[in-house]
C-alpha cells in the first residue's frame, strides 16, 4: 500500500489533545515556578530562581518530604518487587486455582485509592480498629501501637498499604515475563542436573530482567506520585512525618496558596521522575536477552 503524507492529518486531533493537556500545563508549571503567584490573584511578580533556591537550601519541610519519599520508595520497591515475584512464581501455571488466586491478589488494584485509605485507616485505628486487637489475640500484644500516629513508623505503615494495594498489579507483569521464558531452557537445565535455585538464578532471573527493570521503574514512579493514599490517610502528619513530595506540592498550592513555589517543587519532582525513567529505559535496553 502506498503511504500518503496526508495520513499525517489524522495525527492532528491526538497531537492537539497532547499539546493542550500535557505540553501547555508543563510549560505553565515552568513559567509559574519563576513567579510568586498565589493561585488566585491576577497580579504576580517574577522572582527568578528564588523558589528553587529556597526549596533546596532553606525549606526544612521540603527536604523532610524528600527524605520521607525515599523511605517510602525503598520500602515499597523492595517488598513489592519481592512479594510480586514470589506470587508470580507460585501462580505462573494457568490452573483454575491459580487463576482464582491471581484474581484475588489483583482485586485491591481495582479499588479506588480513597476506599483503600478508608479501609486501612479503620484497620489501623487504635481504639476502634482491628489490627491491634488482632495482634493481641494472637499473642503479639507487645507490638501493638499507633500505626499512623507514631512518626517513626507512620511512613512504613503507609508503605505497607501501598504494597498491599499494588502487588497484584505488578505480579501480572512478572507472570507475563515468566511465561515468555522458553520451557526448553528449563528442560535442558534439568537434563543437565540443575536444581531449582540454579534454574531460577541462571535462567529465570536473567530472562525476566527487562520485566524486573520495568517493575522497579514503575514502582519508583508510583511511589513518588502516591498522593491520594497518603493525603487521605494522614494528610502528611504527624509532624510532617508522612509528608511526601506530592503532598508537599498540594499543600503549598492549595493550603498555603503559593502556586509559584508549588510549581517549582513540581518541576523538581518532574526532573527526578524523568531521570529515573531515563535510567529505567537504559537498563531495559541493556538487560535485553536474546533467546
Amino acid at each position: 500500500m502506498r503511504f500518503s503524507k496526508r495520513l499525517y492529518l489524522f495525527l492532528i486531533p491526538g497531537a492537539l489533545l497532547y499539546f493542550t493537556f500535557f505540553i501547555l500545563p508543563t510549560l505553565g508549571a515552568f513559567f509559574y515556578s519563576i513567579t510568586d503567584w498565589d493561585g488566585a490573584n491576577q497580579n504576580f511578580n517574577f522572582v527568578g530562581l528564588a523558589n528553587y533556591i529556597d526549596l533546596i537550601t532553606n525549606d526544612i519541610v521540603f527536604m523532610k518530604s524528600l527524605g520521607n519519599n525515599l523511605k517510602f520508595l525503598l520500602a515499597v520497591v523492595i517488598f513489592q518487587t519481592i512479594f510480586s515475584l514470589i506470587f508470580a512464581l507460585i501462580l505462573i501455571k494457568n490452573t483454575k486455582t491459580n487463576i482464582f488466586f491471581r484474581a484475588l491478589f489483583f482485586f485491591p488494584t481495582i479499588l479506588s485509592s480513597v476506599s483503600v485509605a478508608f479501609i486501612w485507616s479503620f484497620i489501623y485505628a487504635p481504639s476502634i480498629g482491628i489490627l491491634n486487637p488482632f495482634l493481641e489475640t494472637v499473642g503479639l500484644g507487645g507490638i501493638t501501637q499507633s500505626w499512623l500516629g507514631n512518626p517513626d513508623i507512620a511512613i512504613f505503615s503507609l508503605a505497607f498499604v501501598q504494597i498491599w494495594f499494588h502487588t497484584g498489579q505488578v505480579m501480572i507483569i512478572f507472570i507475563a515475563g515468566l511465561q515468555n521464558v522458553p520451557k526448553e531452557l528449563y528442560e535442558a537445565a534439568t537434563v543437565d542436573g540443575a536444581g531449582k535455585w540454579q534454574r531460577f538464578s541462571k535462567i529465570t532471573w536473567p530472562l525476566i530482567a527487562p520485566s524486573t527493570t520495568m517493575v522497579v521503574g514503575y514502582t519508583i514512579i508510583q511511589s513518588f506520585k502516591a498522593f491520594d493514599l497518603v493525603y487521605a490517610m494522614t494528610g502528611g502528619g504527624p509532624a510532617f512525618s508522612t509528608e511526601i513530595l506530592v503532598t508537599f506540592i498540594y499543600n503549598s498550592a492549595f493550603s498555603h496558596y503559593q502556586f509559584g513555589y508549588a510549581s517549582a517543587a513540581s518541576v523538581i519532582l518532574m526532573i527526578i521522575v524523568a531521570g529515573i525513567t531515563m535510567i529505567q529505559f537504559r537498563l531495559i535496553n541493556r538487560n535485553k536477552v536474546e533467546h
Binding site: I60, V61, N150, P151, G237, P238, A239, N251, H256, Q258
Partner: peptide, 28 residues
C-alpha cells in the same frame, strides 16, 4: 494567615504528642 506558619504551629503539637520535648518542638 500564613499557611506555613499554621502548619508549623500545629506540627509542634504533633511533635509533643509523639514525645518531643516542648522546647525542642517549639524550636523546630
Amino acid at each position: 494567615t500564613n499557611g506555613q506558619v499554621q502548619d508549623a504551629v500545629l506540627g509542634s503539637i504533633d511533635s509533643v504528642l509523639t514525645g518531643v520535648e516542648p522546647a525542642e518542638a517549639a524550636e523546630q
